[in-house]
Design a protein around this nucleic acid. Sequence first.
DNA 1: CGGGTATTTGACGACTGTCAACGCCAGTGG
DNA 2: CCACTGGCGTTGACAGTCGTCAAATACCCG
Lengths: 246, 246
Amino acid sequence: MTPTKPLQELPGPHPRCDQCPIRARALFQVVSEDYIAHAEQYRKAQYSLPAKAHLYREGQHPNMAFTLFDGWIMLYRQARDGSRQGLRVALPGDFIGYQAVGTSGASHAAMAITACTLCGFEHQDLRDMLHDQPHLAVQLADIQSRDMASCQNQMLGLGRKRAEGRVAYLMLDLFHRMRERGANDGNSIAFPLTQEIIGDLTGLTVVHTNRVIQKLRSSGLIESGGRRLVIRDEAGLSEVAEFDQG
Amino acid sequence: MTPTKPLQELPGPHPRCDQCPIRARALFQVVSEDYIAHAEQYRKAQYSLPAKAHLYREGQHPNMAFTLFDGWIMLYRQARDGSRQGLRVALPGDFIGYQAVGTSGASHAAMAITACTLCGFEHQDLRDMLHDQPHLAVQLADIQSRDMASCQNQMLGLGRKRAEGRVAYLMLDLFHRMRERGANDGNSIAFPLTQEIIGDLTGLTVVHTNRVIQKLRSSGLIESGGRRLVIRDEAGLSEVAEFDQG
DNA sequence: CGGGTATTTGACGACTGTCAACGCCAGTGG
DNA sequence: CCACTGGCGTTGACAGTCGTCAAATACCCG
């Protein structure tokens, strides 16, 4: 096992990772207890990661894929000038880091936005699992296909929407995904993204991100600050975001 | 079978689709003749599509995935104002249209850039295949994972590169992919993209796309016109494109 | 030869980036 | 308790990339 440096094994073995969202969502969404037990034998370790630490970096050979147990992670790529393009925010339950055979290294970096805990699976073990449990293979294909669809939303935004629409879309997307997880408080959610990270994700500079957020606030669409986000006018925000379908 | 309207079955049955790239690349990359035979039983039909026709549109239920046999296809999404964001150009051998179970419709549209021929597979049949042939499941996961990596390149470009870099990157990407297929003629390739489509793919307007292309030409990096593209200075173009790794 | 499609050019302005400060706040250490 | 420090948010002035509008030219195919 060769985890990146900031990775730390949790103190002591976890019995059966009982609340691990691996059961609830992600790869093993609707599978029976038998499958769970089967999966257990492959799960290598549970990791924890402090905020701002990297799970893996571009070009590295993480050799593992992960189910995010708790916390937020940003996947991003870096341009030559050092600026970062955020690809996706992973929320609890999401599956990240799967990599094709024969690829030389990770196509992107993964950085903890907040402190995180994760379950790690070796790639080869994952492939073995897909062999043994064809159901999982179909599920993985579906997970990847859904990820792809959300990437396409991101591309549409980066290529064709104004700054305001991109930021609004990001906020709505995160709001809905948190709500799916029951992690909302009415129309507000915990929101640990700094404006710098919002800028990374929307392809904007920090300065412009700030101006856009202020505009969204003064339009009465959102409230934000203190690591929380309140959606004041969901319909209006959806309009600005060109957000389709809840 | 409910193909979209512009789909037409080829005249007569094809014996065993002998040159079908399904064998060479895509889902069935390195598999034995046994698997090929097995795959045959699932392949529903071979289709042909004239240039500019749609294979499927956003929100439609194509109910099929395809291996592109011949021709170029653009996958794109449409913004509310009608403008298109190109997501990817599919070249011969590429696998497109796979969709997760339970999704309501295609997340993107697929339009023929040139006349095309394709092999179609019903989604349910594909899932059955993944069950029966676990090797295929791993291959599908890898295909998707590679597609994802190239999407990430696209996102990096849309979010963080200037117009010149995006256009240069697109050209180099297509050049390399054509060369992998042995479809290059030295440092030139057939290049059926109009400037409008290049603009769709790079998130630019036609007008600006035109100016950028002229700049690339006058810098001596490329020659283009007459449905062909010549890479005059690959190193220079790669520099402008921030193109990493051949 | 004619009509539609694709490319090219020009003028103008808006959106967004860049540079440079300043303010706010929490945590830290004296 | 208070000054210090670093991270984050905010503001202003200015520049440039790129979009918009409008039109002319070139190209292709029947």
